Amino acid sequence: MGYAMTFAGPRRAVTVGTLVDAAFAVLLTVGFTLEVAVVSSRHPAWPVGAAFVLCTAAVCGAALLRRRYPARAAVAAIVLCAVAELIDWRTDQQGQPAPIACLALLVVVASTVRFLSPAGAVAVAVGSGVVAVGTVERYATYLARDIPNARTATLVMVVGWLVAVTVGLWRRFGDSRRRVTIDRVRRAERLALARDLHDVAAHHLTGLIIQAQVAQLDGAADPAATRAALTGIETAGAGALASLRQVVRLLRDDEPVVTPGSAALAELVDRFPLPGARARLDLPDGPVPAGWPPEVHVGIYRIVQEALSNVARHARDARTVTVTLAHDGRTVRLRVVDDGHPGVSGGRPGHGLLGMRERATGLGGELSAGPGTPNGWTVEVRIPTPVVS
């Protein structure tokens, strides 16, 4: 469900934007048609009438192109409305720029104040403000002559300009906050991936070191064992390189996130890098539900990976390791148990344990770790059961 919303959102936004632009285009067409009729009814000299009609048409066209060419649309709308004002001032044609041109200008102002650079937004606000003042002056003259049409146009320019600039600035502020939020989330994701990179490298490099030590011990006495150890080192090295590449790819915006599931968890346990030991995965409640959120899948996978790496580093005499993952309607219980003895440090503390606890806490759960009875080591994680969507 989450991914469907992610991909459907942009398409829905594009559809709504297209519908809004189409409705706006219809409105401009109707307004322009009425303006042509009004200009024709006044019977101005044809160059003046043609100039008014062309200015109105061009301003409406600029408004329709405001998304694709915001700066050019703003300049064109402001200049053309100013030209219409000057022509009206010289010819006293009563009503220029046209109301529909004023509306188109205000839409352009709201849009470009939102998207242009700070300097460009200020220039658009000031330039359109000058045009608004000039238009109000023109219509104030017509108001004094008691021309009904002038009152509506004056209100459009006085209130409309304030609304257009305010809306543009408000949406600009909202875009800025949204970018800050996205950047914060991305930084958090990259920090988490950096921890993943540590886990992946530690897990695979531990296996390589152990197999290299085995090859050194058995090399002189058993060439076949040496070849087998070198083959294992090659396989483990290739797996380490692939895992590191996968984590690095996740740091790039254009790469998809691969969510580990039951199959990946089983493969991880099967690749446990401790010669002579046997690791097994126990799923008493069945496979991991595919509908769990990706962070839960990845968190469980990384905790198991680090726990197995700790066994390989600190309990090399272990012979069995059991990974149990149980889940019901309330709790997910992960348990990693081995039968080895702690290393010379007498315990298993370190960055790995801190990382596992951090992951468990991040999932809303808790982690406990300590020596087993009579020997071995136990790592246990309990987190709330994720809601399957």
Rank of each mutant, 00 (worst) to 15 (best):
P223R: 01
L281W: 00
V323Q: 04
E358G: 10
W377V: 01
G219Y: 09
I233N: 03
G370V: 06
A73I: 08
R333P: 08
V38G: 07
G347M: 13
G232T: 05
G232R: 11
L283T: 03
V200H: 03
V381G: 06
A73N: 09
H351P: 00
E189R: 12
A224Y: 01
T141K: 03
A215E: 01
L197I: 10
A57G: 12
I303A: 03
R72Y: 11
L244Y: 00
H341V: 02
V126I: 15
R145L: 13
V75M: 12
F24M: 08
V131N: 06
G350Y: 06
V163R: 13
V133A: 15
G134Y: 08
F7V: 10
L34S: 05
V167G: 00
T322A: 14
F32I: 00
L65W: 01
R280E: 08
V39H: 05
G95K: 00
P44Q: 01
A360T: 06
G343C: 05
A50K: 00
G286A: 00
L334W: 02
D146Q: 12
L250P: 01
V30D: 13
V107C: 13
V323H: 05
T15I: 08
G95E: 02
A121N: 10
A224Q: 03
T91K: 03
G17T: 14
M157S: 04
H297P: 13
A150M: 14
G370A: 08
G174H: 05
F24W: 11
G365P: 05
S309E: 10
S111F: 12
A318G: 07
A164Q: 13
D339R: 05
A312K: 04
A290Q: 14
T141R: 09
N310T: 11
G17Q: 14
A264M: 13
P148L: 10
A164D: 14
R187C: 06
P384A: 01
P284G: 04
L197W: 02
Y301R: 13
H203I: 04
A101T: 07
R249Y: 02
I78M: 14
N310H: 07
A220N: 03
R67P: 10
E35R: 06
G276F: 07
L191F: 05
P47M: 01
V133E: 10
A23T: 10
A98W: 11
V59F: 01
I233Q: 09
V39R: 04
D328G: 15
A77C: 11
A45L: 08
A121Q: 09
V39M: 07
A315G: 09
L169T: 09
R42D: 02
A236L: 15
V387T: 14
L54C: 02
V108S: 10
